[in-house]
């Protein structure tokens, strides 16, 4: 046993000596991982404690699963959780294909200037702060002065106070998110498309494929691995909806569809500085996200032999 151990260690030693330059290159990243990803995991125990910052993690008493019980017994949390999944799920269905479609459309643009121009224009919203985006959305949707409602009323419809109607929140949120992010997200797919050998298209042209056929039979299958990886990542974020933008857009009146886990945690945290509850909610999210990614990856590996790991 010991001799095998020493043999093993010796093997490592030899590896280190031989490839020390490589290990040296890897070192900063390893340190970064340990310091910023593994070390903070120590803090996860807060989820199982009645935490007081002054007492510290070690000094705070254990409470077992009490924090999780509090969460799961709270109907508002349950609703927030369901809302999170719903918003992400709908986002997945409606927002995920948009950058792909955009990338395909850019790819079809022949005029170099027109292409760059339109690309820049759709990238731009990504660089606008969510605060400003929220302001724009609120203005656009204002029932008295908003453009959308002016159009609606000129067409003879009643103005709609979108931001106070729960049934509209998801559309507004997902729609404006598409506007903001789709262009930027299309970069990944454009890069993937750029990686497709141009002779594939030339060959298809000679073989008689139409543009549409080339998109369906060449471009999409060729960037499928990229799409699947992005999809898996997206699924991993299914339980995650960033709170900044929601907080800027939602109203108590729309809580029933707009309140998500992160906003719930934000409000709870503000009320009582309840780090323990917030950590428990975060951990709960992380575990579910992990399970989702794991499953998605499994399925993808089986079905399309593309996988994240």
């Amino acid at each position: 046993m010991t001799s095998r151990m020493t043999h093993y260690l010796k093997g490592i030693g030899e590896d280190l000596r031989r490839d020390w330059q490589l290990y040296l290159l890897a070192l900063p990243m390893i340190v970064w991982f340990l310091l910023f990803l593994y070390k903070p995991m120590e803090g996860l125990q807060i989820a199982f404690k009645d935490f007081s910052p002054f007492r510290g993690i070690a000094g705070s008493p254990w409470v077992g699963l009490e924090n999780f019980r509090t969460l799961l017994e709270d109907q508002i949390f349950i609703r927030a959780f369901i809302n999170t999944i719903t918003i992400s799920g709908l986002g997945l269905i409606f927002a995920f294909p948009v950058p792909i479609i955009l990338a395909l459309m850019f790819n079809e643009l022949q005029n170099e200037f027109g292409r760059r121009f339109s690309q820049t224009i759709v990238y731009l919203p990504h660089f606008i702060s969510v605060v400003i985006v929220a302001g724009i959305v609120i203005n656009l949707l204002s029932p008295t002065t908003g453009v959308i409602n002016l159009i609606l009323s000129s067409l003879g419809f009643e103005p709609v106070y979108f931001l106070t109607q729960p049934e509209w929140f998801r559309s507004v949120f997902i729609g404006s998110n598409i506007w903001k992010e789709a262009g930027f997200e299309s970069i990944v797919y454009l890069a993937a498309i750029a990686g497709v050998s141009p002779t594939l298209y030339e060959s298809a042209r000679v073989d008689g494929a139409s543009r549409w056929q080339m998109i369906w039979r060449i471009t999409l299958p060729c960037i499928l691995p990229t799409i699947i990886i992005m999809l898996i990542i997206r699924i991993g974020n299914l339980v995650e909806v960033g709170f900044e933008y929601i907080i800027l857009l939602y109203q108590p009146a729309t809580y029933s569809t707009a309140d998500v886990v992160s906003t719930y945690v934000y409000r709870t945290g503000l009320q009582g500085t309840q780090y323990d509850l917030a950590t428990a909610a975060g951990l709960f999210n992380a575990v579910i996200a992990f399970a989702l990614v794991f499953t998605a990856n499994r399925i993808s590996r089986k079905v399309s032999s593309t996988s994240l790991w």
């Binding site: 002779t199 030339e202 060959s203 073989d207 139409s210 060449i218 299958p221």
Partner: peptide, 26 residues
């Protein structure tokens, strides 16, 4: 006309039969 390319221009996601069939399929 039909053309054969230097780097073959085979579709990586299709098997041999479908690659050969491509021109007919489209």
């Amino acid at each position: 006309v039909a053309m054969v390319f230097q780097n073959y221009a085979l579709y990586p996601h299709l098997n041999v039969a479908e690659n050969i069939a491509f021109g007919l399929r489209v």
